[in-house]
Amino acid sequence: MSLEQDITRVVEATEGLTATVDNQISEITNKLNTAVAETKTKVDAHLASADALLNSYEERQSHFRTTKNQALVANTAGTFPLNWSSGYVTKATLLEKVETDIDADQRTPLAREFLRAMDSDTKWFAQNFNIWELEFAPNRGGENSHVDAYLMYQYTRRATHVTVGAIVKHISGVVPHGMWCQGLQAGEPAKLCGTHYTHSQRNRYLHCHPYSAGKNLPADQKGVIQVALPAVVTGHVPLDKAWGQFAYIGDDAYDVVT
């Protein structure tokens, strides 16, 4: 009888110890979960604060244009945007001048489409600009038909991080890519396209031309796009937000050796 009582006491003690251990494990788990949750909350708060700070720095950057004629003013002959080199553009047509100080509902659908692409479908905006339609060769033609063609461009210095962008709409043919056509897709409304370039050395330059990757296509299979407000701009302009018209940093005559 004494042995049975001893066994009973051992079993009861074991069960009590198990319950105590289980309670302690549960308590430790609860404390650990609470600590993890508190730590996550603090980390999330710090990350949110860092993101807000980074966003504020991004918004406080000064952006200046290093290319000329963002508004795409026509040359004297009216055949091409002034200061832009044609590349393999075969035909350029000035479609429309988009003017400020006009009620939005009085503008053409094309003008409103381009303005909406940069969140500016309002009565007033920075200044007037032109929309052009560009027809371009699918490739460089002849013996070089296997080589990508390129569209209109300017030379610019690349001494710092730059953003290349434009409002672009694909109409037909090859969809150009790169530079101010990066992200362009067929069948979409006018949209902000572009990309960013870092500098590997301060004394570099850039030709800001998109490419037409129509290798070996017949010469008559031309591409067509519509474009407004192309530019190369200093700094990191967030391309998921609105584009704009940027002030130009010009070179005076004494800044260029001829």
Rank of each mutant, 00 (worst) to 15 (best):
V73P: 03
L32Y: 10
T195N: 05
T258W: 08
E135I: 07
Y153G: 08
S86L: 10
D105P: 00
Q70Y: 09
L110T: 05
S212D: 05
T41I: 08
T66P: 11
P238F: 05
A19Q: 14
E15S: 07
F64T: 11
E59C: 03
E58K: 10
K31F: 07
N83L: 15
R157A: 12
T198I: 14
V224F: 09
A219H: 08
A104L: 04
E4N: 09
F125R: 00
W84S: 03
D252S: 08
S62N: 13
L192C: 00
S85Q: 12
T18P: 02
D119V: 02
N130Q: 11
S26R: 06
D240T: 12
M118C: 00
V147Y: 10
I171V: 15
V233M: 04
G183D: 04
A247M: 09
L151E: 05
P109M: 00
A117V: 00
A228D: 00
N83M: 13
K97D: 00
R157G: 10
I131W: 02
T29L: 06
Y205P: 04
L95A: 04
Q5A: 11
T8V: 14
E188W: 08
N216M: 11
V89E: 02
T14E: 13
D103K: 14
L184S: 06
E133D: 12
F246K: 00
K97L: 13
A77W: 11
G214N: 06
P230Q: 01
T93Q: 10
K191D: 02
H161Q: 12
P189D: 00
N69F: 07
N130K: 04
T122P: 03
G173V: 04
L239V: 02
F129D: 01
V174S: 06
N139S: 10
V233Y: 01
Y254G: 03
K169Y: 04
N139F: 04
L206M: 14
L82N: 13
N69M: 13
V227C: 05
L3D: 13
D252M: 13
L184M: 04
V232E: 06
S85M: 13
G194R: 01
D105C: 03
H199Q: 14
G178F: 06
A242W: 02
N139C: 08
L94M: 12
K40I: 08
I225S: 03
M1K: 10
H209P: 05
H146C: 10
P81T: 08
L94P: 05
L32C: 03
D121A: 01
A77S: 15
V232I: 15
L134D: 07
T234L: 08
A104Y: 00
Q201C: 07
E135K: 11
